[in-house]
Design a protein around this nucleic acid. Structure first.
Lengths: 355, 355
DNA sequence: CCAGCCTGAGTGACCGGTCACTTAGATGAC
DNA sequence: GTCATCTAAGTGACCGGTCACTCAGGCTGG
């Protein structure tokens, strides 16, 4: 019966289209009356192929609905036309925005970008990363997450890698994404509005971004000769941020709060309201992230907007540069990916601090 | 020089480890003194293999740091141990949460889950989806996005597919994610608090989710014998939501606003404040999404929290069921993925409506 | 007029696994 | 004791492309 079926299949496909659906390069060759190698050359856009044949092959490809098998191509060949972006396996919202930005750039280049996530325990993950990089499926890979593979091992692999770690293996942002230097502009902007005494609500200091924002805060306070009531670690908890503001001694004269992100800033606003302080009348408060509600809540939040898509575009361009041409250095891309948005939660320092 | 290098490479690897790094199944076989097929059987955990050989092969695998080549495996074989989740190529935050949930389930199963995004113009995308499904790289694929491939074509493919479209090709959620039935509970909950006259701030009606929420709103109003001032289309714009609330005639007696998402709800709160109405004193307002700021802003938002991770776990289980065992129907998973969170933005209906 | 070179095309091996079939030896039934 | 069956392992083809090499014919040049 197995045999019978195979026979019937064979007769059914005797024309051309192979037994399991997809036509192969050899089917195309047969129909066009050329060798399989000629078809391969055609697919590689080899110029040493006569127009007449080119036309015949084109017709055969069309007729058989032929499309090359990516896997087979990856097996021996080099050119797969595919790039990969390795995303962290958590819920980092921004990584999707990065991806969207990268996709946009790659689309016009003839390459296809695939995003992939590798989960599992770190050890297994490292293995799978190596697998992936050695599989030849992709011509180049950019890792948005720490790869947990020893560098020397990485070099020995078949596929070039860009390490653009935006998140470490625990989903904490690092690298450019963790760069807190905008905090300096927030502080100096508030100083221009007359603020002299600040407090910083820090995030979870296990995160590079929280550390960076705290450092920049402290440096800026020092370099501008301002006064800091201190740094209060809130571990990304809005409740703790609110309590911290609630506990500020009136005598301290704090008029500006630099929160490590929007969530803490919102918590701080709540804490201020609870003790009867108005924002920004008595207290100015800043956040970071530009959450989609930050512009709508009351008061709307002065914050730092991060252009993840731009970061994605940069990574994509790096990838393209790695695999081939795409030479033109992007002229427009010297801008930083962060931008301050001043809104209602900040204002002039009160003449006499609340208390 | 190229030649020289190749020579040195060859001498370096002359022992076993193949010329381009990775050891193959035949290298392992040679070292263990068995045939390549025996190694293949070992890898497939074939029981018909003697313990002695098993041990020898194990040692060889270890010594050569051998790991199977996924691509080669996909070429002829069936079992690749990989599943894929096809994500929409936009910035849908929740798809990452879905992914995180799915990853968790798959991890313990011996399978590996990969998330991938396919960008580009719809036509090209459809092609690439077919490529993917035909490549044999994955044993099963779940599409979180509309695939844009004709169903009959899908069936003919090599890889089984689960269509769990949570987003259509324009990133608009459909399917379970678009199910707006929780709106009914919001409305009846508010009715219990004495509200009788409602208004609905609808989202962009191009989105299935917005449509569904509106429908459920209208049905519930009708079935409970309540009164609706109407449906105001806001297209996800918080400004329009605010204006809509600002334009409510006082005589209409509206005391409850059902907004299609948190952004609109926040806009509505802003609109209420602008005209001197308090929330929830004069007006109760609900949202949808449970944005991370919704619990912190003032007033905190009564909203619908969507458990995307649970949805992801479900999809993962479906995938596993498709490829093999993993039979036990999850006992705990009859719960819906949405849940109402009552917060400060809702309260008893005012005795006399504002106006 | 023929050696040498370039052009257009073909032949067969190969990538690294798995599948289908075969085979040597051990075991069991009659 | 012989034949059938089972077990443990091997042999070679194959998946669908690309690479390395070969080859026939047309052109050029001396």
């Amino acid at each position: 019966m197995d045999l019978a079926r195979r026979d019937s299949e064979r007769s059914l496909v005797s024309t051309e289209t192979a037994r399991r659906g997809r036509a192969t390069i050899r089917d195309v060759a047969a129909r066009a009356g050329v060798s399989h190698q000629t078809v391969s050359r055609f697919l590689r856009a080899d110029p040493t192929i006569s127009p007449a044949l080119r036309e015949r092959i084109e017709a055969a490809v069309e007729a058989l609905d032929y499309r090359p098998n990516v896997v087979a191509r990856a097996m021996r060949g080099r050119r797969t036309g595919r790039l990969a972006l390795l995303l962290p396996s958590g819920e980092a919202i921004s990584s999707l925005e990065i991806l969207a930005g990268a996709t946009g750039v790659v689309e016009d280049s003839g390459y296809a970008l695939e995003a992939l996530t590798i989960g599992g325990p770190p050890a297994a993950r490292a293995q799978r990363v190596v697998d992936l990089l050695d599989s030849g499926l992709f011509e180049a890979v950019a890792g948005l997450t720490a790869l947990e593979v020893e560098p020397e091992r990485l070099v020995a692999l078949r596929t070039p890698v860009i390490l653009a770690p935006s998140y470490d293996s625990h989903m904490r942002s690092v690298g450019e994404l963790a760069d807190g230097s905008r905090i300096a502009d927030l502080v100096s902007g508030l100083a221009d509005l007359g603020h002299t005494t600040f407090v910083h609500l820090a995030g979870d200091l296990e995160h590079a971004s929280a550390v960076s924002r705290r450092e920049v805060y402290l440096e800026t306070i020092a370099s501008l000769g301002l006064h800091s009531y201190g740094v209060i670690e809130c571990g990304w908890s809005p409740e703790r941020a609110g309590d911290a503001v609630g506990a500020l001694p009136g005598a301290a004269g704090v008029t500006a709060v630099i929160a490590a992100n929007d969530k803490l800033a919102a918590g701080a606003i709540r804490g201020a309201a609870r003790r009867g302080w108005t924002v920004p009348g008595d207290l100015s408060i800043t956040g970071w992230d530009d959450n989609e509600l930050s512009s709508v809540m009351m008061p709307s939040l002065s914050t730092v907007s991060v252009d993840h898509a731009r970061l994605g575009r940069r990574i994509a361009r790096d990838l393209l540069a790695l695999v081939d041409a795409s030479p033109a250095a992007p002229p427009d891309d010297e801008e930083p990916i962060t931008r301050i948005v001043w809104r209602e939660s900040t204002g002039r320092a009160p003449v006499r601090p609340a208390g």
